[in-house]
Amino acid sequence: MRLSINGKPHDLDVEPEMPLLWVIRDVVNLTGTKFSCGVAACGACTVLIDGQPVRTCVTPVGSVSETAEITTIEGLASGDELTPVQAAWVEHQAPQCGFCQSGQILAATALLSQTPEPTDEEIDAAMTNICRCGSYPRIRKAIHAAARAQAETLRAAAGEGASNDER
């Protein structure tokens, strides 16, 4: 079996029923993805599969397409350059104990890729991950901030594109 995780191929010899979470954590040893409930109730194990948030603790690895691109928390930043979501998390001091935050950040990343400027209701609907430290109010603010940052980046890019066209 072969999986692509954070752009890197991995050849795996594991039972197809093994949840993707444990392949990521204990076989590939990317430990930023966390185990908490084991029943897809909390979202700590969330990763992106082709951009979609997936709770990996109940996702058999055999059900994942070999052509799918899996993104874990380790695959977001390029070097020290954080994504807008990660940067907003730092700016708004969202994490406390930090254990749920990989899942929260990936769920928010997926939300913003599909809904670039989400309303509070859309955040409520998409962000169902549990945080016992109560970081929800800051996560909400961070998502709005990341949405603004992304929009500004897009506008700036569009502006550059326009000026290039004029030339």
Binding site: D26, G32, P95
Partner: peptide, 26 residues
């Protein structure tokens, strides 16, 4: 700003389940 937060947004923070040692069993 808290010193501990950057490692909690990129997966670097190590909790006990994340410890990896040679020959370790779970």
């Amino acid at each position: 700003p808290r010193f501990d937060i950057p490692a909690k947004v990129n997966g670097e923070a190590i909790y006990s389940g994340d410890v990896r040692l040679p020959g370790m069993v779970f």
